[in-house]
Design a protein around this nucleic acid. Structure first.
Lengths: 214, 214
DNA sequence: TGTACATCAGTGAACGCGCGTTCACTGATGTAC
DNA sequence: TGTACATCAGTGAACGCGCGTTCACTGATGTAC
């Protein structure tokens, strides 16, 4: 009972391992998530993880699932915060809110983001997209949230059904690429400039979607 | 002189190693580029690569450099092919041509693409972007090619200087994200649908850039 | 044209390392009586 | 309230493996004379 020695039981090892794995993924990429290093960082013996995960892949899968859920939470919270009297304005602001939230999450939690979009979760994602949410809690899925925002824009008459087609891919691609570039080659760009560029991009897309072909 | 036995000297080993490394990167990601496997695939002993590259990093750097050069070549060829009487139409088509070429290259050569945008080439890229091409062959740099296309749109009066600001990031993000998604979660999308979605996205961006804010 | 020799491009064995995973184990906790 | 015991969460040693890299080497090529 010195208070200095760590207790034998960690108490929250599973969660701590996921967190450490995400941190490692941020630094080294998903391929660099090494079970022994994850254990090291959690201050636990190198095989303790096997009490909580079948193997390395199971840990990575959990990181991917957590990441996707966190991303969806962040996006949903951002959308829910937008309100106002004009339904067109609300719909437009909700779309840009999803995009902003997406980029924010990717830059804040690059580890979760990287793992969620690597190897493991791919088949899972593909399946989700192929048969989009049959009623059951579509709000847990980032992709579904984006589609809801776009459908709203059509419902309020801001976007024509013709322009709606493929718009989800265009929007997703833009914010995904924006995040990837600012985690990679544009890493050095200041937060201020990054924010300006993000708003400019969201504005371009919004204009492009809302207006008739030029 | 049986004609069956491979000659002792490969003749083109350096290039073959780069090619094999790119193939491996396509399958396993940049982290999965393993010197011994590269040698195996090239049909050469596992240490033969050391006659041509100082170490694994040097090989990866070469893949990144080659990838960037190939991408730039592909984009430049696409731009050069666009011509016509109306300078506004030409400028617009040249912009979309750069984007189309970017995506085409990424999907055709995902190995080169992945390595070029991972670890190694990052500092190199950042430097290039920070001090953009001081006169010397800007046409070898994909980023510079994009900026040229956007500057042209301003020059012909299709895009206002205000909208020009940050446009290079928006365009790059969109095509980069589009490529990444179709190499990852949207892997299963048919070539036909992918092409439709790409055109829709390029159209949205073009509209958004050209028109006044809606 | 022929030959000695330097140089270049490959080979095979060996190194040390960190990895994922398994094993038999120990310390801590919770529960039945 | 006390105690035996099952269960759970961790440990440390050991395994086999593939890796990057180095070493001393050999086969092929080119060049000076």
């Amino acid at each position: 009972m010195t208070g200095v020695t760590r207790p034998y039981h960690h108490g929250n090892l599973r969660e701590a391992l996921v967190r450490a794995a995400a941190d490692l993924a941020r630094e080294q990429g998903p391929g660099g998530v090494v079970l022994r290093e994850v254990a090291r960082r959690t201050g636990v013996s190198h095989n303790a993880a096997y009490r909580h995960f079948a193997d390395r892949d199971a840990l990575l899968a959990q990181v991917a699932l957590d990441g996707m859920a966190r991303l969806a939470d962040h996006m949903r919270a951002a959308v829910d915060q937008v309100d106002g009297p004009d339904p067109v304005v609300v719909a437009r602001r909700r779309l840009s809110a999803t995009g902003r939230a997406y980029v924010e999450f990717a830059l804040t939690e690059p580890g979760f983001f990287a793992v969620a979009f690597a190897d493991v979760a791919q088949e899972l994602m593909s399946a989700t997209i192929a048969s989009p949410a049959p009623g059951d809690r579509a709000d847990a899925d980032p992709y579904a949230l984006l589609n809801l925002a776009l459908d709203d824009l059509v419902a309020v008459g801001a976007v024509t059904p013709a322009r709606r087609e493929g718009a989800e891919v265009a929007c997703w691609a833009a914010v995904h690429g924006f995040a990837q570039l600012h985690l990679g080659p544009l890493k050095g760009v200041s937060a201020r400039e990054r924010a300006t560029h993000l708003e400019a991009m969201l504005e371009v897309i919004e204009s492009g979607l809302v207006q008739a072909p030029g």
